[in-house]
Simulated assay, not measured.
Amino acid sequence: MCDTNFTFGQRGNHYFQSSSRRDYTRLPKKLTFLLTSAQSQEVHHLALGFEDSFLLTWRDKHGRDHIESQGLPTELTNFLYATNAQGRLLRNVPAIRLTLGPHNSSFFVHDSASYIWMNLPSELLTALQARIKDGNWIDRPRIVALGADSNFLLITEKHAAVWDLGFYNTISRMLEYSRTQTRGIADVRNVTLHPYRYQCFVALSMNGTLISENVPPHEAAGVERIRAAILKDTKEMEKKAQESQRRIESVPRRPNMQHQATLRRDWGERKQEVRAQSKGLRLSLSLSVSAAGIAGSFSKMLG
């Protein structure tokens, strides 16, 4: 499954990204400048919010990671830009993931090690707290999506799912259906709710299928472009994985060093045994096969 990033802003803007393609419209000027800068090599994550607010994490052509933002809540920026005594960022920048609720009044953000949130719907907050014991996660969040009017979706690493999606009926029915399937919720890889437009969402499955509904007309073409790119990227990744597996399987298996040492010891003992039995007899035995050669001959048996 290829990496993806979907986000909708309040001013009719969006940013979609797969491994091979970006698609965006009506972005804030500062953000557009950053994305098109010659210094920008890779976008780790992008989140759009109320008015011209945004978060961008990116890597420059020298391999340095950066955080850029605008108009975000103070509590969120304090988390993002926290530094140690040497002035270095505490956050694992490439791992930062942010979802913003309507008007930036709520958020959920993490960098895979540290998590903070603010003003979450009560049912979502309860579900998160139930998965923390003694200050540690017992089942980490995998997907957190915040939608209009306190609608939300939570999917955990152990594929538990909790949601209130009264204004996103299609994705709610899809999730109910997924629970009846063999892989169930595990097949749901990404969900983004539009926090300013009822029934609008994009959702991605494990096989690269992108589903969307009620996307604004001026953004519908962008969905189709990224849909084709994701399918292409997913197929290419699957092909590479299969080729890699075939290469691994084609390499002859060799015993480890412990096996080889055992063979040398056993063969040495066998030679001593032959010599002992041959005393007083006219017996000639000549072998030029090394322990490594024997190991190769019996690699299947030892494997």
Rank of each mutant, 00 (worst) to 15 (best):
I132Q: 07
G184H: 07
G303F: 11
F167C: 11
N84E: 02
V191P: 04
S150Y: 12
L210P: 00
Y24A: 15
H218D: 06
L48T: 01
R227N: 04
I248V: 15
K30L: 14
A82Q: 02
L283G: 01
T77Y: 04
H45A: 07
R140F: 09
T209Y: 03
G63T: 10
V289S: 00
Y198Q: 12
G71V: 06
V162T: 13
H44E: 02
R97A: 05
Q17G: 05
I96F: 06
A113G: 01
M206Q: 12
F33N: 09
L231P: 00
L175K: 01
I230S: 00
N256I: 11
H45C: 03
Y115E: 01
Q10M: 14
N151R: 02
D60A: 10
G63K: 08
L98C: 00
A82Y: 00
V274Q: 06
T83V: 15
T74C: 03
A203T: 07
S205C: 08
G166T: 10
S40W: 04
E238S: 09
D60L: 10
N256Y: 10
Y24H: 15
E176K: 15
E75R: 12
T99H: 05
V188Y: 02
C200Y: 08
M1D: 01
L154Y: 04
A145M: 08
N151E: 06
V274I: 15
N78Y: 09
L231W: 02
T126R: 04
A95K: 05
M257L: 13
G222Q: 07
L72A: 05
R179D: 04
R275G: 04
E51G: 07
N214T: 14
M257C: 07
S286C: 07
Q272A: 14
L146N: 00
T262E: 05
R183T: 10
L231K: 10
A220I: 14
T209D: 03
S40C: 14
R59N: 01
Q181T: 15
T32N: 14
L287D: 00
H62W: 13
R179L: 14
L56R: 04
R246P: 03
Q199P: 04
H62K: 15
R88D: 08
I143G: 00
D3N: 07
M118W: 05
R26W: 11
L125D: 05
M257A: 15
P121C: 12
S18E: 05
Q17K: 15
R26L: 15
V93M: 06
M237S: 07
S278V: 08
L153T: 08
S299L: 09
A161W: 05
N13S: 11
